[in-house]
Design a protein around this nucleic acid. Structure first.
Lengths: 120, 120
DNA sequence: CCTCTATTTTGACATCCATCTAACCTTTGG
DNA sequence: CCAAAGGTTAGATGGATGTCAAAATAGAGG
């Protein structure tokens, strides 16, 4: 096997000419996609992004799911750590907002034919 | 706790009025995002989508990664099962193509402000 | 200060996932 | 028909992940 990235076969295929996601960048992006790869988290983000107030109180989120409150908290933390949402405490309650810039970034990556240049 | 989906608190927040992803649909979409949530798979898809020929031979993919051939095969199968790529055997070699429709679907979901109507 | 409510953290646990090696299938070419 | 090469499948394994109950933290309001 050729380890130099060129075709190893005797003529089975043309070499890769386009410029796909480099490994480092792919790891970054994959983290965000992974965060979206759970039904609870995707719904959480969707609910947060869809709310007309631009933010949602955790107290309203917990009632919408079949899982316990700590589980919701766990998922929200994960969304936070990947930069997909921000949070903000006001008094007893905590409010979550989407980070639209990040959502646009992911959307653009999937929209680009070569999935590369849109990745910034 | 109110289990009817309305606010349970004494006035901490406005009720959710927008229409986010329903649970069933969220599960579907989450599967696809999960498939993108691994660096190897994301790179695989990117390479496949970026190739000028519109398809890539597996024989060229295996040389580009640090993982063993069966692992590449495993990831390709996963991408296949989520409908993100198609494959096709010609002679000894197997070629993979992106399913652009699916990519657009995911992209649109993230682009929609409420992450719902674009989900078809 | 004490208590009540909202939210998060911790610890435990069962399951899932990415990876490898070894074995298998398929096609090509003697 | 046999051997070689490309790709996939099977089985095993260590590590990550989602979940819960219990405990901890943070404000609000006596």
């Amino acid at each position: 096997m050729a380890a130099d990235g060129t075709s190893s076969a005797q003529g089975c295929c043309a070499p890769l000419e386009a410029l796909p996601l480099d490994p480092a960048h792919a790891t970054d992006m994959a983290k965000m996609f992974k965060a979206l790869g759970d039904p609870v988290r995707l719904r959480l983000l969707s609910i947060i992004a869809a709310h007309p107030d631009g933010e949602v109180c955790v107290c309203d989120l917990t009632t919408l799911f079949d899982v316990a409150a700590p589980t919701i908290s766990y998922h929200l933390k994960l969304l936070r750590e990947t930069g997909l949402v921000e949070h903000d405490r006001r008094g007893t309650w905590v409010y979550y907002r989407p980070v639209r810039e990040r959502l646009r970034q992911l959307s653009a990556l999937l929209a680009a034919p070569d999935m590369a240049e849109a990745a910034r």
